[in-house]
Each structure stands twice: as structure tokens, then as C-alpha cells.
Design a protein around this nucleic acid. Structure first.
Lengths: 211, 211
DNA sequence: CTAATATCATACTATTAGTTCGATTTAATG
DNA sequence: CATTAAATCGAACTAATAGTATGATATTAG
């Protein structure tokens, strides 16, 4: 078997394991899913699972990585297609919300791993890759903010990178919170989650908007 | 022994166990601290520990509860002493940051448990108490926002409760993030953590400020 | 002193991540 | 087809740890 073919097979096996793990994680929770569960459901022996991934955490990190790539693609898409900064801002906000709904288990990690500190990163390939994707996203957002300045939505003396990171952290936390507290929001604020989120997105828009 | 005296002893024992657990959690991490560790360090047998707390999670929740009480007291203090809304806002921001530094392990839970959804809350006394403290804090913040309106820092048609919760989530996430990414912030933005935070606090102030 | 209560030590169960290793299967290659 | 190397299997094993059970011992109230 040529080297190419083998490599394809390896990726194929990894993919099956990851997809199975993700399905189980969603069904019964990450903590509650055991390596034996994954092994049985994916129809590989446990030893084989450990050939492909050196720990459960590495499986988790690979899932995060894949979804961060999706996030990067989505944001880049928004930036490419938007007609102006403000529209792009709200589109990204709503896409982030969709991402939460699609991957509630991973959303915080996806958002929070944008440019994590470079600790113990060197030894771990997948963490390194996660870091790199985070940087790509941060760079795209920086470009978007520059566009915001040129379109006069943002002041030209805004500190771009600090603003990007503050906004990013706020959006991530807002979206997570609106889901965790959905019934509270309905009861105490008489708002649907989506209304609450729109309010929050507007609020945070004003945190960066030119004054 | 009178009932009073016994009750005092119970509280005393609980306190020792909690303090010991917290010390160990800080030293070696929460996950890495075993119930046997706590038992040995606190000098109670493991069985006795389980008389006072029904699980490790309950110990954790009691610690959270205690620190949420501190947070409530601190915010109330700020609100009482501040000369105006803006000053109070920044004082609370800085107090939150101090709280993070004091309790890095619990900060997210302290901030995030403000008014959690009422699920499975009924059966669990300490979670119920945590919920109640969260409500107290939310109420204080509501009063503060009303003062902000009357002092003309905030617009009179602001949606108070949604704004409080969005701000709260944003501040919590910002503070946590600034610590996790401290070295990144220094390297890429050439800012000390405290500078970055001041920038973020100002940004978020503009998200609520009257326009 | 007696009875109730609190504490103790110890051993136990159950779960699960991760390892080991020899047996078996698969497939490339001559 | 036969040889060989790589991949996979399976099953038993280790180590860690939350939580339980139990019977003995100590403390204290009345």
C-alpha cells in the first residue's frame, strides 16, 4: 500500500472515531462517555483508539479544532460578503449564536481558545494548531475593525486588538449565558432568548461604535 | 449539650473542612485534591467528612456560596459609598478584578451563578442559597442602574435587567480572559493586564452609557 | 452509670483512563 | 502463493478515586 493510501486510511479512521465520540458526547455528556463506550460504538478495539488518540482529552481537542475551523470559515465568509461593518457585525453575532446551538458542548472552548497563552503548547501538536486557528480568527477580526474605521463606524483612534478581544469575550459569554439562563430571562425579563441576545448585541455594538 | 452548642460545633467543623479543602484546592487543584487528602489535612476521618458534606461537589458549592456572599457585600459596599454612578461602576469593576485575584479558581462560578436556571434546585439546599445570593446581587445592580438613570449617566429608556446581565457576563468573561491571556496581551498588545482591563471596563461602560 | 451521639479506622465497591501483550488479521511485495 | 510487516484485536491488568459500609471507640447528656 502506498504511503498516500495509508495516510488516507488513517484520516478516515480518525474521522470515524471523532464523529462517534462527538455523537456520544452529545447523547450522554462528555464526562459520562467512557473510552470503552467510544470504542464499542465506533467499532474499534480500545487499543486501536489509543493508537489514533493518546487520550480522551486529545479527542476532545480535535473536536474543538474542527469546530474552530468552521468558525474561522464562517467569520471569513461574513467578512467577505458583508456590505458594511455594521451589517457584518450583526451577521457574525448571529452566526456565533447558531454555532452555539449547533455545538453547545464546545462553544465556550471554541470561543475561549482564541489565542490562549502559549503554555505547554510546544509539546502538543493539536493545541498548537488550535492556537494557530485562533490567531487566524483574531487577524480576520482585526481586518474587519480596520474596515470599520475606514467606513467611519469606528473611531480612528480605537485600540483595535484590545477591542477585538474584549468584544469577543463579551459575545461568547453573553451567548452562553443567554442559553443557561433562558428560563430566567423569560420569567424575569419577559424576553425570548433571541430578543435578549439582540439587545446584548446592540449594547456591545455601542461599546465599540464611534462616538 | 444544648442544641445551640451542638449547632455551633457543627458549624465549626464545617468551617474547618471548608477552609482545609480550599487551601488544598489552591495548592494542587480541585480535581487533583482527593477526599482522602481533605480528610487527612483537616484531621477528620473520611466518614466524618461525609457526615458534614454529602459529596465533593457540595464542598465546592459551599465554597462558592461563601465567596458569593463576599461579592454581595463588596458590591453593596461600593453602591453605598460611591458618590456617583460612574465612580461606582469603575469601583465595582476593580473590586471584581481583586476578587478574581483572590479566588481565581472560583471566580467564574461566582460570577456565572448569578441567577442560574432553576433546575434541580429545589432538592439542593446550598444551590438554592447560591441562587438567592445571586438574586440579591442582581437586585443591587438594578438599584444602581436606577441611580445611574436618575444621575443622567444612563438613558431613561434603557432596559435595566437585560443590561445588567449582559454587562455582568461581559465583565466576568473579560476579567477571566485577561488573566488567562496575560502573556499574550503583553506580547501582542504591549499592555499590562491592568491596562487592558481598564480599556475593557471603559469600553463596556460605553455599552450602557447614555448617548 | 447509661444511652445516645459523634468519630474513627479500615476495608470495600464501582467506575474509568490508560497500559500491556500476545494472538490474529490484513495487505504489500517479491 | 509465501513471506513479512503493519494494523487490529481482545482481554486482562493497573492505578486512581468517589463514595459506602461496618463495627469499634470515644465523648457527652441526663
Amino acid at each position: 500500500m502506498g504511503k498516500k493510501k495509508r495516510e488516507i486510511l488513517v484520516q478516515f479512521n480518525k474521522k470515524i472515531i471523532l464523529e462517534t465520540a462527538e455523537k456520544l458526547f452529545l447523547e450522554k455528556g462528555i464526562k459520562q462517555t467512557t473510552m470503552d463506550d467510544i470504542s464499542k460504538a465506533a467499532d474499534y478495539s480500545k487499543s486501536t483508539i489509543y493508537v489514533y488518540f493518546k487520550s480522551k482529552e486529545e479527542i476532545y481537542n480535535h473536536i474543538i479544532y474542527d469546530h474552530m475551523c468552521e468558525l474561522r470559515d464562517v467569520t471569513n465568509q461574513c467578512i467577505k460578503e458583508a456590505t458594511n461593518f455594521e451589517e457584518c457585525y450583526y451577521t457574525i453575532c448571529n452566526k456565533l449564536f447558531l454555532l452555539y446551538e449547533q455545538y453547545p458542548l464546545y462553544f465556550s472552548s471554541i470561543m475561549g481558545n482564541i489565542s490562549i497563552d502559549e503554555k505547554a503548547l510546544a509539546e502538543n501538536e493539536i493545541l498548537q494548531q488550535i492556537y494557530d486557528i485562533g490567531e487566524e480568527i483574531a487577524n480576520s477580526m482585526t481586518l474587519l475593525f480596520e474596515r470599520g474605521i475606514s467606513e467611519n463606524y469606528l473611531s480612528s483612534d480605537i485600540s483595535i486588538l484590545p477591542s477585538v478581544f474584549t468584544l469577543w469575550a463579551s459575545l461568547g459569554s453573553l451567548i452562553t449565558m443567554s442559553n443557561e439562563k433562558e428560563s430566567y430571562i423569560l420569567k424575569r425579563m419577559n424576553m425570548k432568548k433571541s430578543e435578549f441576545l439582540q439587545h446584548g448585541f446592540q449594547m456591545l455594538f455601542h461599546s465599540i461604535k464611534r462616538r
